[in-house]
Write a protein that binds this DNA or RNA. Structure first.
Lengths: 187, 187
DNA sequence: CAAATATCCTTAGCCTTCTAAGTAAGTCGG
DNA sequence: CCGACTTACTTAGAAGGCTAAGGATATTTG
């Protein structure tokens, strides 16, 4: 039972609208947190943490990749993947295997239990998505997706530049043409 | 110097595009993290943490509100505000004061140092925003903002309902009409 | 007025993520 | 073959956020 009224949140959003700089960033952050909370609430009812969802959904799409590749696909740093995978291993969702002749890489495989979660959990994400975009037209969503991708590209370019990495960063569209499988092997 | 190529991130985004459910949520999350990182990098050069920015920008717009009101405006829970304010107090950015006759509320005031950060820090946020929206048309940004607000409203409503809070949640627009000052006093 | 209730701040502890730094294992130029 | 990278995983620790729960103080209500 929530003690605080959601009115507070709405007030806050209005207030942000009146602040000239970086409103958009906060709107995006709020939307992200809202989506996160909505999914988290639902996952919790099935005993799955939000952090694990990120990795499970990748693995359902094709498991057996190295831990590092999993990090790349999830868009997080290795320590994040490491601790999540360790925890999921303890929960019996995944197994960490090595290939003979390679003592360096660790390959992540789903267990039957890990696999079985898919049918229960995916509908939850779909439900959250449906709730979030209720009342929006398909056209608006497509436009938003395009705008978000452009922003992500812009920021990635900025980040690379700031890091002194002067290689040219290809746009998402360019890379898309070079990819085919669901499990890019990163070189 | 970044060791990992940003190419990995781009691959990841492409891969997401091919996953049918909850792509939008991940796009929003990525954009949010990208914006966060970009600002964080810049704030760090001035010795300010990202977490403190959230509160400073509210206080610059008018300080002296109770800690709880600050939480509401920042859109975070009280413990988050509590620890941030404590840390900022130690850094000399803010002071926590009580009013005689009220031993309950704690009012947060900026120190001269806290005030002085505004001129240095606000341009950083503006720069990040400018980078992020580069190449986007005003029309697209307005549309995205509207869509994001609608999503946030949808999710807040869902959240309230899930919490068994059956009060009707007013839309942002409705509330906007009831507000006038930059420091809503919450009743 | 006194008791029940609500509100505000605080504490404690967990989750997710990050950076920095360490270790082990492959790879490559000489 | 060997030393110098480079790569992959691991460890340690911190930031930012949350929930749950506690204490203190106001407010409301019987």
């Amino acid at each position: 039972m929530t003690k605080r009224s959601n009115l507070a949140q709405v007030i806050q959003h209005h207030w942000r609208e009146s602040v000239p700089d970086d409103r958009l960033a906060h709107l995006i952050k709020d939307a992200s947190r809202g989506l996160g909370r909505a999914l988290q609430m639902r996952l919790a009812e099935h005993g799955v943490s939000f952090g694990h969802w990120t990795f499970l959904r990748i693995l359902w799409n094709g498991d057996g990749m190295a831990q590092r590749a999993l990090s790349d696909m999830a868009g997080v740093m290795e320590p994040t993947t490491f601790s999540a995978v360790k925890a999921m291993e303890k929960l019996g969702y995944v197994e960490r295997r090595q290939k003979p002749g390679d003592r360096k890489q660790v390959f992540i495989h789903l267990t039957p239990l890990g696999h079985s979660l898919k049918d229960k959990l995916v509908p939850l994400a779909e439900e959250v998505n449906a709730i979030a975009i209720e009342g929006l037209e398909e056209r608006e969503i497509v436009a938003m997706r395009r705008a978000l991708l452009a922003m992500i590209d812009n920021l990635a370019r900025d980040e690379a530049q700031a890091a002194g990495d002067n290689r040219r960063i290809p746009s998402t569209r360019e890379v898309a043409g070079r990819l085919s499988s669901a499990q890019p092997s990163r070189k």
